[in-house]
Every structure is written in C-alpha cells, then in structure tokens.
Amino acid sequence: MGNFLKSTKCKIILFILALLTGVMVYALSVGGYTIRTVDIFKTLTAPFQRASSAIAQRVEYTLDVYRDAEKNYEDNRAVRREVARLNKALADYDRTRSRLEELEAFVGIKEADFDLTLSSPCKVVGYVANDPFGSFMIDRGTKDGLSLWDPIVTELGLVGVISEIGEENATVTTILSPDLSIAAYCGTTRDVGILTGSVALAMDGTCKLQYLDKETLLEDGKVIMTSGENGLFPRGYVIGYVRSVQPDDSGMTAYAVIEPAEDLLHLDMVAAITGFTGKEVETP
C-alpha cells in the first residue's frame, strides 16, 4: 500500500480528482446554464430515459389502480358531487357573464388581453432521482426559445419554472420546492399571499399560501391564481385549490395548504410561457 502512494498511478488519480474539482467549480460558476457537453449527453440519452420513464409510469399506474381501488372509488363519488355543484355554479356564472358583457358594451370597457406566448409542447424526459420536490427534465432548451426562469405550465395550471437550461434540455423546479416564492391570490375572496413549498407538504404533494390575514375568508376548494406582481408569472394563471386553512406558528397570520391543479409527479407534456404582458426577468 505504501508503494502505491509513491506510484504514478496515485499521481494520475490525484490529477483526476483535481480535474473533477475544477469541473465542479466551473459548473457552479455557470449558474443555471448546463455545460454544452452535458447538454449533448442529455440529448443522446433522452430517448432511452423517456422509454424507461414510460415503463416506470405504466408500472406505477397499474400498481396504483389495484392498491388504491377503494380510495379511487370514494374519490370518484366525491368528484361526482363536486361536478354537480360546479354545474350549478356554472349556470350562475353564465348568467353573470352575459350580464357583464351587456354592461361592458354599454359602458365601453375593453378588457386587456390575457396575452401569453407559449412554447411548443415539451416532453418530460424524466424526473430527477430522489428529489422530494419532484424536479424534472424536459426536452427543449434555449434553441427552442426557452429561457431561464420561464414559467412551466399545463392546460390545468402552473407547474414550476426552468431552473437550469442548456441548448436542448432544461430542468424544471416545481412549485413544491421551498426555493420558489410566487405571489398569488384568490379570485373570489381577494386574499393575497406568497405561495411556496415546504418539505413536510411536499411529501404530500401540496404547497402553502402563506402570510394570509388571520381573518382570511379562504375556504376549501377556492381557486388560487398567480397575481403577476413581480413580473415573473402572468396574472391569473391557475396554481391550485385550497385544501385547508390553518393559523401559522406565530398566530399573527394564517396559511392555506394548496393542492396543485396538476398532478406534478405524473407529468408527460408541459409548455413554457416564453412571453406575456409585463414580463420581467429576475430570479424567483
């Protein structure tokens, strides 16, 4: 063993360790941008990763069907009741909307457009292994017009933001992560707060809307949307639904547990919002 420490082999190994340290420091210095070689490697492995992810998702789905059969049955009943309630609300909404249109025409108000530019659909290549916050990789990057911190969405709601990007790939941090803070509000009660993730809630697939007034009117099922305050997210994009409201530890404010509108751990296709009215580039 003593001979090894004096040998050329040992010097080669030390050189490689120094080189890896250099690579690590360089990767750290480029911030949220992927090194080109890594980007090429990710592109080459993407089809295989997609195939393995598809198989894994199929297996998870099959297991879930059998494991959660009773829960799914109960959920189904609850959803039917919710659909009936929403249909009733929709009828009211239609009446209110037609009245509003009449009034707008009468007063001459023209509402500002909900102006969004969406990227072409991005395929989810795979999830980051053992990330409790469900970060995932997509098969599009700067070459496709995406930028760092672009919001990632599906037709159901906000998913997260691009936190690392290369020419042909990007990594998305989801709204379950405590690293993200998003200004959000409830369209009906007008409560505003900051949406962020927490370790405990991420285990349950939820996040929280904090700094709410302790007398908040929020209740279960209310829709939470982006408020677009800091110019990082468009205003009025659905984030999720209130599951419960609780006072925080200090007792000065309250927080709401939010269930994301989209199932963040079983995504297949997403899109990036590459442009919207009032967009400003900053770190969320």
């Binding site: 890896l20 690590m24 090194i35 890594v38 980051v128 292994a129 990330d131």
Partner: peptide
C-alpha cells in the same frame, strides 16, 4: 446527472 446534482459532486466521492 440522474440526481440533478452539481457536475462532479458525486464523481469525486465515487472515485475515492
């Protein structure tokens, strides 16, 4: 790459 960690972070430990 699989764990989304800083490039080289796990590599140094695994080389050792």
């Amino acid at each position: 790459l699989a764990c989304g960690k800083l490039l080289g972070y796990n590599a140094i430990w695994l080389v050792v």
